[in-house]
Nucleic acid binder design. Structure first.
Lengths: 340, 340
DNA sequence: TTGTACGCGTTATCAG
DNA sequence: CTGATAACGCGTACAA
């Protein structure tokens, strides 16, 4: 039934080890016997067994993809998730890796820890903040490399691939300032701990920088902490826009953008009409929304690909060093931002 | 560095095999030695090695999740994808399985075939049509169980978990008929081969049934074949609604719904206002769109969970039999469908 | 260049 | 109830 390396060896009249050599492109194998072996492999339809290979080589050629958000839905439901996933899986497969999904980190992260401990994967790509799930020490102890994408601890010494959020906050604000706006709000999510995550802190920095450059004075209430789910976000928008009417707002993610647009179009079409809106997110997604939103567009597919690339090289070279790679976002201008 | 079963055995002063027994809950082990072993495992922080276990047991406890659409983006970008993925991963992890993603099936399905051949997973859940990718024979030959979700070959004898689309087409049409509509269109996607996929054929069947029941006559042009991507779909809508003004339309998926809504709100707000719209999809998703769409809502999370459940039991019992499970969809009524 | 022999960490089959 | 021993399928020094 199942054909092993032994069968191939017998058919090709060589020893198992020779078969193993051609399998691994070992240079020292005569062309003629190589052909014999290849021939045998072909007629038998042989494929090396995964478990046996992993055991012998100590590598599984699997990358774990951890989705670790307070609410997993927040991440998975996020429109950028598919883009990242696609970037990761397709590039991983190009490099001969497969992707193991690890998602139910919200209940208990037993599954994640198990995957680490039993050495089922060669490395991890971790999406989302890990404020409450800190298994990094374990990873280091076990010698398993890992890379964060999307968010990361501001201070920690971790490998990271992401977007230059200072630049993002800057170009968003500068764009609006150039259009004549001065009364601009930056709406950012807040985590349960009331803390603002590092990527938003960076955006605020960039935001302030644009104000300073333009000689405008910054006010603390330009930064608005906003709920990150659709439901409460919607109600928050109602409360906020009842007492405030800024001439422009910047939303820090897709969910907020939807909440804002929905509320305004439901109850304040006048405000929606005259207020300028800029959002952080994925330009492809917002392209199909109405109104079309000016977007600080992150390179999600690039992030996925880059993370895989870095991780694969770290795995190959047993390299546990850390490095951070960020890329500047693009500003995609659409009709939601207009001259004041 | 790495602690193995041998270390545990030595510390507990028993033989490896005894350790293995407590690991696998073999009943035949004295309580006292069991405690000793457990103790040793704990102090050493031991976890059984994944590869070794797979090799010896012949099971990897990994389920392959294959996303096989003509255009992978169509599926992954589909708003229901995260819901299905969540259903699958969380339930799989409950059962002690991990999920291996296999997505780049659009270029070449080498990766998929490799995963099959090297026996990296115990079974497959396959999302989307497999009209051009037919590795089922190989799966059967290798004795690997698999289950389709979402779509499947109409005739083939395959395990399948999905939605009762006849019922779906029926309730959509009946709802509109009850509201007084008679001039109703059902817009369905067509594949490259010009063929309509089985799930849409079923919906058409249900659609006709509702017409028949109401004593209304059905016309062939009530069924409208529509492009399935956002871009060409949008242009199609323009062409179509320039020459047709039905009083109600039923859209067969999220992308079409977006195309339709976008076009109408851009250029035909009058028509959007008076035409009734019903869509197939995920009610959670459409809840946040404007206008809120009446939705034939599929139970995507249930589909994921059920598929995992079925597959896990087939794996455990070496059961290669096939069975189909379908569930009736719900009709979630929102403001887009109105009395004529 | 190719064959031999052993090890990878578990599970499973037998005895005892 | 527990210990010894043989697979599981492959990689790899070490010989030849």
């Amino acid at each position: 039934m199942k054909v092993t390396i032994k069968d191939v060896a017998e058919l090709a009249k060589v020893h198992k080890s020779t078969v193993s050599r051609v399998l691994n492109n070992s240079n020292d194998v005569k062309e003629k016997t190589k052909q014999k072996v290849l021939q045998a492999i072909d007629t038998l339809g042989y494929s090396p067994n995964f478990a046996a290979r992993s055991l012998a080589s100590g590598k599984s050629h699997i990358i774990g993809f951890v989705v670790s958000e307070q609410q997993i839905s927040d991440v998975v439901m996020n429109p950028s998730f598919p883009t990242i996933l696609k970037g990761i899986t397709t590039y991983a497969e190009e490099l001969g890796y497969n992707i193991l999904m690890i998602t139910s980190v919200d209940n208990d992260y037993k599954s994640y820890e198990q995957v680490i401990r039993k050495h089922a994967v060669d490395g991890f790509i971790i999406l989302g903040s890990t404020i409450q799930i800190d298994l990094n020490e374990l990873l280091i102890q076990q010698g398993i490399p890992y890379i964060f994408i999307g968010k990361h601890h501001e201070s920690a010494d971790e490998s990271y691939v992401g977007t230059d959020n200072i630049e993002g906050g800057y170009i968003a604000a500068k764009h609006l300032i150039d259009l004549g706006h001065t009364d601009i709000r930056l709406m950012v999510g807040q985590v349960r701990s009331q803390k603002i995550l590092s990527h938003n802190i960076d955006r605020i920095t960039g935001f302030k920088k644009a104000f300073a450059e333009a000689g405008l004075s910054f006010r603390d209430d330009y930064i608005v902490k906003t709920p990150t789910d659709m439901e409460t976000g919607y109600h928050f928008m109602r409360t906020y826009f009842t007492s405030h009417e800024p001439s422009a707002v910047i939303l820090s993610n897709e969910v907020m953008a939807m909440s804002c647009i929905n509320y305004l179009s439901d109850e304040r079409p006048d405000l929606l009409e005259r207020m300028s809106i800029v959002t952080f997110g994925d330009s492809d997604f917002f392209r199909h929304l109405r109104p079309p939103l000016t977007t600080v567009s992150q390179h999600f597919e690039w992030i996925g690909r880059t993370a895989v690339e870095m991780l694969a090289s770290q795995i190959a070279e047993d390299d546990m060093s850390t490095k951070a790679v960020v890329r500047k976002p693009d500003l995609v201008i659409r009709s939601s931002s207009k001259r004041k």
